[in-house]
């Protein structure tokens, strides 16, 4: 889903850069204010974690494969803005070090995979969590559905950006991207649930910090 260089028109590239950099600036500002010094190594290692976990491909029926994105998982565990910041760091290192995703499209990639998939879908998760029963299953289900949405929505935004740039017609890319990614999204949801399940057993303190006390009590049971 990393948009390579040369695909976006100047207007779309600049527009997404403005949004992406704006959100990251807010995240940096908030981090400078709120984060303790302990968080700096933590966030750096989290970025390296996401980077390494993205190298893992899971097979998709039909011959292709998709990889884990991790934006929603980070948002659930670290909060939406911090998740954006970590995703931006991952994408910047991937772009500058691996040429994975264009430099002109870095803003768009941060927008799709950080702002939409991380921060935006965090609110899908919050919304679902409010209406689902406050149990372990309700918590996991809302994270799973939001994780699916994080993949599908960011691929849809990707298709729309390419269309706005006048490069690829919406009629081809939107069904293609959303079709493939609605399957990849299932993998993302499963992996997210897996991570949260393991965390609730091994390090319940990490999950509990981010939840309201009532949900946390249910999850801890």
């Amino acid at each position: 889903m990393h948009i390579p260089p040369g695909y976006l028109s100047s207007e779309v590239a600049v527009g997404t850069y403005v949004v992406g950099v704006g959100v990251c600036t807010a995240a940096v500002w908030k981090a400078n204010r709120d984060l303790s010094e302990k968080q700096i190594p933590l966030l750096g290692v989290m970025a390296a974690f996401v980077f390494a976990a993205q190298m893992l491909n899971f097979p998709i029926p039909g011959g292709t494969s998709g990889h884990f994105l991790g934006a929603l998982m980070l948002a659930v565990l670290l909060g939406p803005l911090t998740a954006c910041l970590v995703m931006a760091v991952v994408l910047a290192v991937q772009c500058l070090g691996f040429a994975d995703g264009g430099l002109d499209a870095l803003g768009a990639n941060i927008f799709n995979m950080g702002v939409v998939a991380g921060a935006g879908c965090y609110y899908v998760y919050v919304f679902l969590k409010r209406f689902l029963p406050k149990t372990r299953a309700g918590f996991l289900a809302s994270a799973a559905v939001a994780a699916w949405f994080s993949i599908v929505l960011s691929s849809a935004f990707c298709a729309v950006e390419l269309w706005l740039s006048g490069k690829l017609p919406l009629g081809v890319t939107l069904p293609l991207m959303v079709g493939i990614h609605s399957v990849i999204g299932l993998g993302e949801a499963a992996v997210t649930v897996g991570v949260l399940t393991v965390l609730m057993e091994a390090r319940p303190d990490l999950v509990r910090d981010r939840l309201s006390t009532r949900t946390a009590a249910m999850v801890a049971e």
Binding site: L42, V45, M46, G194
Partner: peptide, 28 residues
């Protein structure tokens, strides 16, 4: 099966997360 693989992958990434987090704490 595909479902079984996904489950293993999920658990694996979870374990990996715990290890990374604990590494970050040690580093700090």
């Amino acid at each position: 099966g595909w479902l079984w693989q996904t489950k293993v992958v999920g658990r694996m990434v979870g374990t990996f997360f715990v290890r990374s987090y604990e590494r970050a704490e040690r580093v700090y």
